[in-house]
Structures are given as C-alpha cells and as structure tokens.
Design a protein around this nucleic acid. Structure first.
Lengths: 119, 119
DNA sequence: CGGTATCCCCTATGATACTG
DNA sequence: CAGTATCATAGGGGATACCG
C-alpha cells in the first residue's frame, strides 16, 4: 500500500457489505409486516393474508419463500384434507429482535425529529 | 371491539410503521455507503464519488439531497473559486449509530448462519 | 468542480385468472 | 385453502451529455 487514501476505501466497503446483507434480507414492502404478524404466533397462509392490508397472494407467497430461504420462517404442511399450511418464526429469527427494535425506536425518534424541524 | 382478532391487526400495523419509516430512510443502493463514507469525516462531492465504487454523479447528487432532507447530512457551500461544496454528517445522524451497528452485526451473524446451513 | 437533463431499461409490485 | 401463471406498470437506477 502506497498511500493512506485507499484505506478509507476498503474499510468503507468492508463495513457496508454486512449492512447491505442485512437490509437485503429485510427489504421489500412486505417482509417486516409478515415477520411482525408471525410474532403473535404461528399462522396459516390465509390468516397472514388477512392480517396484512393490501398484500396479494402472489406477494405473500413470494415473500414467504424468501423468508424461508433465509431461515427466518418455517413452513409446515399438515397432511389433513384440505391441506393446512402453517408458518412460524424460527429460532434464528430471534436474532433479528435487536435489529427490529432499534429500527423501530429510531423510526419513532426520527419522525419526532422531522416534526420538530418543520416548525 | 367485539373480538380479539382485530387486536393483532392494529398492534401489527402500529409496530410496522416506524420500522418502515426507518428502512425507507436507509434504503436505496447508495445511502449507507454515503453515510459510512462520511463517518471518516467531512468530504467534498468528488471525494465521496471516488470513495464509492460504481456510483454515478446523478445518484450521488440525488441521494445526498435525500439525506440532507432527512437531516442526516449537512451541505456547506464555501464561497471560494471555484466553489467548494462539503458534506458532513449531522448530530442527528449520530442517533443512527445503534441501528447501523445492529444491522452490521446481524449481517455478519446471518451470513455465518447461512454458510452453516448449506453444509 | 459540482452538479442537472435526458433517455432507457429492468426489477419490484400489482391485477387478474386459474389449479390441485 | 394455498397457492401459481400471466400480463401490466411505476419508479429506481444506469449511461451519457451538458452547464454555470
């Protein structure tokens, strides 16, 4: 390394990568609503759909697949008739609690800040 | 209120709103890279551009405006010739530290989780 | 240097219909 | 009930050129 300049640069990238990873997992319009809906306990596909205003079957299905792929949600098919599919948060999803809580707190703080500024 | 069902529903929405607010402020491909770049100290437009791989002038300009509007970044025009514009984080942006840190930690944790699962 | 204006494309999401 | 298939659309973001 010849100069100090590239230092910032690589530190910067190394810092941002995990942050982006995290945001990517949580992103999309419906991921958080789904996760929050499931914090009240295991639910069926139709129940989640009813809980979340405006979501379509297509999006619910897609986002659930994403969450399952990321190990945050468990999908269980009960072999009844008609079949019954339930979704629930996984133990791994608990690790998100701190993240979600800090986002929630900051969202509230920031809204208060904006209201105060616009006076 | 007649049933217990609508309870989840409204609690759910009230919980999600601030979380979405927070995510909206941080979202977009470049907001975090810009914020992180500025944690190393005040920088000029061109310096930020050089720091962040792949960003175009257009996006940098647009995202900086967003960050300024949200009170996270301060823009200062120095009346020299040619003019010199510097950007720096505001005190309010410090309140994001906990959020960013928890996202960063979770990003790392989650990546480790995924690697472990795929074995 | 520090941007803005234009044009263009692609991905995320929505609407609707259909199936086991 | 629990989805998938198909089509349509808005806006986020890239490329390029230009401006004070």
């Amino acid at each position: 390394m010849n100069e100090t300049e590239p230092l910032d640069h690589s530190v910067c990238k190394a810092t941002v990568r995990p942050i982006r990873d995290a945001l990517d997992v949580l992103n999309g319009k419906w991921k958080l609503p789904i996760i929050v809906a499931l914090t009240f306990g295991e639910k069926r596909f139709g129940e989640i759909a009813k809980e979340i205003d405006g979501i379509t079957d297509r999006m619910l299905s897609k986002e659930l697949q994403d969450l399952v792929a990321n190990g945050l949600v468990r999908r269980t098919v009960e072999d009844t008739f008609p079949i019954r599919v339930t979704y629930a948060l996984t133990p791994h999803s608990q690790s998100l609690n701190e993240v979600i809580e800090s986002l929630r707190k900051w969202g509230i703080l920031h809204r208060a800040y904006l209201v105060n500024e616009e006076k």
